[in-house]
Structure formats: C-alpha cells, structure tokens
C-alpha cells in the first residue's frame, strides 16, 4: 500500500513539473532542446524556421517587424540563432530578442551596444 502511494505521488510530481515546464518562456534552452524534443524529425531546421516565422510574423503583423525576413536567408537566421544560444550567457534570451540581436548585428550596431541591450533584457527578466 505504501509503495503504491509513493509511486502515485512520484508520477503526479512528474506531471506537475511537466505542466510547469510547458509554460516556461521559449528561450535558448527550448531552442537547443529541439532535436531531443522531436526525435522523429531528422532535419529540425524546418521546425526552427517555423518558430522564427511565428515570432517574426507576430512582430510583422503587430506593426513592429524585424528586418530579418528580407535581409537574411532561412539558413542564415538559424545559424545566427544557434551561435547566440551556443553562448551559455545568452540562453535566457527569449527567441524574439535573439532575432532582434541578429537584426542589430546586420545593421552594424557595435558589440558593446548589443551587450548593453542584452544586459537590459537580463535586468528586465530579473536574471
């Protein structure tokens, strides 16, 4: 009986954690976890492209578009985001802000200003 109760509690705690994890902001951890999350998908670039378009498209349709869609290729954006998130200091960045940073890099914004922008975001998220 005790074993059953312990097992039930164990399963429920896993479920609760899953529910909480689902509502985490989509950031570098989520991005880097894509291959593990989609084991059936051999090339996850399509999934990454859809995520980028979900964010870029929302900005575009909200009247505040990024500039990436007409200056970068799909592969180029994916590579740039991979580069940003490979730096462990940047994994907290939500996808939308990573796309903004790529836009800033393309515009030739100096690195120190980009770093300042990243620290601003970090402060905003209390990290």
């Amino acid at each position: 009986m005790k074993k059953i109760i312990i097992l039930v509690f164990l399963i429920s705690s896993i479920l609760i954690n899953t529910v909480i994890a689902k509502h985490k902001i989509f950031d570098g951890t989520s991005w880097l976890n894509i291959p593990a999350q989609f084991p059936s998908v051999k090339n996850t670039d399509h999934i990454k492209d859809i995520y980028i378009r979900a964010s870029e498209g929302t900005a575009f349709l909200s009247g505040t578009p990024n500039i990436l869609y007409n200056t970068h290729t799909k592969d180029n954006i994916i590579l740039s985001i991979n580069l940003i998130y490979e730096n462990k200091n940047n994994t907290f960045l939500p996808l939308y802000y990573s796309l903004n940073i790529i836009g800033m890099q393309k515009k030739g914004v100096p690195t120190d200003q980009i770093n300042l922008y990243i620290s601003q975001i970090k402060r905003t998220f209390n990290l």
Binding site: G57, T64, P65, N70
Partner: peptide, 16 residues
C-alpha cells in the same frame, strides 16, 4: 526595452 524600428511591408511575408 528597445525595439526595432517599423519596416516597410514587402511582398515576401514571414508569417505562418
């Protein structure tokens, strides 16, 4: 937080 400047709409749209 700073945001990007609004950009002119083009014919190639990125939305889903």
């Amino acid at each position: 937080l700073p945001t990007e400047e609004p950009k002119t709409q083009t014919s190639t749209l990125p939305y889903l």
